[in-house]
């Protein structure tokens, strides 16, 4: 196992290819649940949790069913084109399952994440992470690391944004900019800042 590659994937997912600021995935919860930093952190943690698990679950389904060399000896015949729809199915069921599981076994974690879990069912950041795992030919460990750190990148982004939005409430904006427009402008400026990381070259 190449630790160096894992660190590269992790830093890349958190800073350089941040899911929100450079890939523009998961914008819906990013704008919707960022009004206070408390809820933003809850949402970020839930996304991290689900992204890690989804990466772990989707990897074997992809490898042993969709592009299995045993079932489809001829690579042209495999079900690669089905990845998107199958992954959506998997993620949706997984989230539902996690919700039920948490409610029964870990009520405290359920009360912390429970409200946000259903919101993630169709979150494109989660779908994005599993699709990218496949596209980048990541191994199982690499997939999970990419999923978890991608979620951490989401957490960082939504927390930063919510902290700014809390301050933004007290600012005096032109009337036409008040509320959502100024939040979008702020998100754009934050994305520009994160653009600065794109020059980072990890490990030569």
């Amino acid at each position: 196992m190449d630790v160096q590659k894992l660190i590269t994937i992790a830093l890349g997912a958190i800073l350089i290819n941040n899911f929100i600021f450079s890939q523009f995935l998961g914008i819906c919860p990013f704008m919707g649940v960022s009004k206070s930093s408390e809820t933003a952190v809850g949402m970020g943690l839930a996304v991290t949790f689900v992204m890690g698990l989804a990466s772990a679950v989707c990897y074997p389904i992809n490898k042993y069913i969709l592009v299995s060399e045993v079932i489809f000896p001829n690579a042209v015949d495999n079900l690669k084109f089905m990845q998107t729809i199958v992954f959506i199915l998997v993620i949706a069921s997984l989230v539902q399952f996690i919700e039920m599981f948490l409610q029964k076994t870990m009520p405290s974690l359920y009360t912390a994440l429970g409200v946000y879990l259903p919101l993630i069912t169709t979150n494109c950041a989660v779908l994005g992470v599993v699709l990218q795992n496949v596209q980048n030919d990541y191994s199982f460990i690499e997939s999970v690391v990419y999923g978890v750190t991608g979620g951490l990148g989401f957490l960082l982004a939504i927390y930063l944004f919510s902290a700014i939005r809390e301050k933004l409430q007290f600012s005096e904006n032109p009337k036409s900019f008040d509320g959502f427009p100024i939040a979008l402008v702020t998100a754009g400026l934050l994305a520009l800042c994160f653009g600065g990381f794109s020059g980072l070259n990890i490990f030569g």
């Binding site: 079900l79 199958v86 199915l89 069921s93 399952f97």
Partner: peptide
């Protein structure tokens, strides 16, 4: 047909699990 079958089976399995 295989695609349909795979999706149907997956859906049924996940449905059963849920």
């Amino acid at each position: 047909l295989i695609a349909l079958a795979v999706l149907a089976v997956l859906g049924a399995v996940f449905g059963a699990i849920l």
